[in-house]
Nucleic acid binder design. Structure first.
Lengths: 197, 197
DNA sequence: TTCTCCATGTAAGTAGTTACATGATTGG
DNA sequence: CCAATCATGTAACTACTTACATGGAGAA
């Protein structure tokens, strides 16, 4: 095993007044009209969940942080004895979001896929077991392509109204899962041929 | 914001005698010939780092766990007063690895990409700022395609010697980054056209 | 001798999770 | 009145990270 230094720390430390990524995600969703922690969670599940998730337990502390920094303004609107807080983005918040979006820092691409790890090690398997595993990975991507395509019409509608970027990210999701399906099929043939000798 | 229940817990709890994923990664690398914690780390950096990472601090506890479960056997081989332990996989270890690779459990696909998140929110930007951001994401994938292609010859060589699956995962990496480049270019045109009105 | 690589180990911290508790409102 | 949905908050935990300490071996 030869050596090959690599690096750039996975999570570079935050600069001056930067926020942690989840806070920017929350800020972005407030900008798009999500008013409460609950609505933010729903919005994430409906839109970016294919490349970013956030748990409810992270959202409320993020909102507090954003409010302390005056990037959002919250007002209390309780339901009976249950507290409820509704938020809107401030001018400063808009500015902070745009600054984050245009920051020159490198953007790490972080994929953590146990499916690809399994495929990588699949030479430890018999041919037919490996074929089954590959079929599983392929099906997973094909299903994902289906789910994403079912949202496409809504994203196209949004694009016509000026929000093109959700459609862009959706198309990227479709494209790269389709790419994984294609490579799977190519290799299914190859594994089939090699089984013939 | 309408509701849409989703779910499946991100990290389903481990069954009976399953190991955490990092331990299987370590086990797989020992099987491929990495003998020490250090070599395992090198092997990960040289091969699966594009879809899985593992920090050195995780490796040693994983090796201890694997040894306690008799999935690997370690022998001490110190250098001077510095301890060193070399590991080999056991028959039981081979079996556990194959069992994991063939397990019927669903394989979650977890992508966490701040680049796609930024693109999703990019309607908050002016057209030329959005174009710059898209160019950044495109460049990142194009560079990744380049890096991966530079490894391709080595993977093809390994494939000829019977290890086809590293080539498979490499091709998947190339394909889906290429897909992201393609979609980027398609949208660059679209954004350009819309700027003309 | 100084640098880089081989090699292990641990302390302290961060980021994130699940699970649970609470309770109001709406629709069947 | 019961179930589902809207809505918030927190405690306990897991996974994982960075940073540092240690030290041998070989090369320049």
């Amino acid at each position: 095993m030869t050596h090959m230094p690599l690096a750039s720390p996975a999570r570079p430390s935050l600069r001056h007044d930067d926020l942690p990524s989840p806070a920017y995600v929350v800020l972005g969703m407030v900008r798009l009209g999500a008013r409460s922690g609950y609505e933010i969670k729903q919005a994430v599940e409906l839109s970016i969940r294919f490349f970013w998730t956030i748990s409810q337990a992270q959202i409320y502390p993020s909102l507090e942080l954003l409010e302390r920094k005056r990037l959002v303004r919250g007002r209390s609107d309780p339901r009976g004895r249950r507290p409820r807080r509704l938020y809107t983005i401030t001018g400063e918040g808009e500015r902070a979001l745009r600054e984050w979006l245009t920051a020159a820092e490198p953007i790490p691409f972080e994929l953590r896929d146990i499916g690809l790890v399994k495929l990588f090690f699949a030479d430890a398997l018999d041919r037919d077991e490996a074929v089954t595993l590959l079929a599983l990975v392929k099906r997973r991507s094909r299903e994902r392509v289906g789910t994403l395509k079912s949202i496409e019409a809504a994203a196209e509608e949004a694009a016509r109204e000026g929000n093109v970027h959700p459609l862009l990210t959706l198309r990227m999701g479709i494209a790269f899962h389709q790419a994984m399906v294609d490579v799977s099929e190519e290799f299914e043939q190859r594994l089939g041929r090699e089984g013939d000798d």
